[in-house]
Amino acid sequence: MSGYEFDFDGQRLQARASGALYWPARRWLVVADLHLGKSERMARRGGALLPPYEVQATLDRLQSEIAATDPACVISLGDGFDDDLALTALPDALCAQLHDMARGRVWHWITGNHDPVPLRVGRLPGSGLAELRDGLLFRHEAGQGPDVSGHYHPCIRLAGQRRRAFLIGRDHLILPAFGAYTGGLIADDPALTRLIPTGLAVACGDRAIPLPLPVSGAVRGRRA
């Protein structure tokens, strides 16, 4: 799987086509907004009964990223679980899969707005943190930069299709959501242009494709 390498806050980083961020110098793998357990939370609330496979699907994708990069450390950048109950409801088999994936690595669960208190990791591998400052500042929601964050689930439109995307600015690096059942916010939304007025977007998909921000009319208007 191909990635796109760029510099942010003095570090060389790789935006992977899967939507994960890789930091080669440290061998760290960072993923944002897994939202594990989202379908069950919706069911619990009497809503639609979505296909209950999103945890499996998300973990399978994460597993193949871990297999590809063999990271020393894995960071979940907040909203790893859709809520606290989702953590307790995580089936044993999937929990075991997580432990397999974490074996021999450091694992950090950073706090998000869906899982606001530092995660009581309990049966999970690794530890819960409000934020992590080590060479770079990792947190769920962008604040005083430079920082690496998630939360917004950024997307762009490219060649007539919507794709999840990294947004890279001077002060902020925002990761796309990695979870299977996550919507997205198009990069030209004011909430995002306020944080990153100009910079780069890296579209996810079969390959990581960089393009300038703001996305100019040529991309969005042209018919493929």
């Binding site: 490219l158 060649a159 007539g160 299709q161 780069l200 579209a203 998909g205 079969d206 390959r207 494709i209 960089p210 393009l211 300038p212 100019s216 040529a218 991309v219 042209r222 493929a224």
Partner: peptide, 25 residues
Amino acid sequence: VPIAGQGRERLAEEEAAALMAEAGL
């Protein structure tokens, strides 16, 4: 009806590359 295949990937890359070039990036 668009086909999401290698052709479209090639096209997306071409478009993005043109934009990058245009922006001097």
